[in-house]
Amino acid sequence: MSGSLIIQQPGNSVVTDLGRFRGPRFGLPVNGALDQFSARAANILAGNDDGAPLLEITALDFRMRATTDILIAVTGAPLHLTVGGHECQQWEPVSVRAGETVAVRQITGGLRAYLAVHGSVEAPVLLGSCAPDTVVGFGLRLAEGTELKTSRSVPPIRQPYFDLPLFRLGLTRPEFSSHSVVEVTDGPDVDEFGDTAGLLYTTEYTVSARSNHIGLRLGGDLPERQSSAEVLSRGVPVGAIEVPSREELLVLHRGRGVTAGYPVLAVVTSRSLDVLAQARPGHTITFRRTTVPDATAKYRAALRELENLRSTVSTVFALLGIGSQPGWRQLAPAAGS
């Protein structure tokens, strides 16, 4: 049974997914959820495929009303979540009855929250992704009164025993702090910075207010390029650390322009990009040097944790009779069916 979500207070929110992975070859950034772990976890907790469209709520308070009974999960930065006026837990599936208001308030400690709905929401797709692209003007930015179509309704599930948590899913939640350690590997152009490259690991950097989904700007002691030769434009990875000016370090995130002409000093690991996604202006950051095999191992460990969560959620949902199958199978009917 389909229904709608009516946005009452959009704050700064969009519908997104894990990103437009086919975009870079066409000159479009990958974009998508900046904190990929939290986004995947929200979808898994809502019984969806990891890559299903979900809401990314950045910094500001958010409210919506559901027209049917639905099941949601909210992850990401610590915040105050209420449904129908009652306080609810983050990082857990939460029932919402038809007519109730979901309110996300006081996003603190981090910057971005993710709200997934069982069965997901409808959103326009470009090159296989609904992720907004501010440069080409694509995507679903939520406004007051925006109506999002949902494809599945879930009857309310309420804990019969007062105050006991309904779900014990055993997920290690990420830590949120005003000081973060971010792991990086040597960039392909590290040699161009000579001895000054070491400053990256001994300096505490402060996140500037001019940071966004394209990149974070960090203030502090800056490594300096030792040559001034022109660099031909070339593809730069998400996570690339550049020193384009004498004032700030630039750390490219998922909205980055695909090509650039600055030398790449270091590259933030896939896991630590999630940490940067939650860094607020004024937060401090120190960088720690690691290796590609170590970074890959940590990334895979996080994926295994999400797989464990998925199997727990599937078991619990089957016991509760939620979705005879994972919700995403309904979103993508098999050929010939």
């Binding site: 086919r22 870079p24 070859r25 031909l232 434009s233 070339r234 593809g235 095999p293 890959t296 990334y299």
Partner: peptide
């Protein structure tokens, strides 16, 4: 995921959960 060729350089992007450098 794909490859971004420019002048003398090519960026090959991949999912480290599925494959490796």
């Amino acid at each position: 995921h794909g490859a971004v060729p420019t002048y003398d350089s090519l960026l090959v992007e991949f999912d480290p959960g599925v494959t490796s450098a």
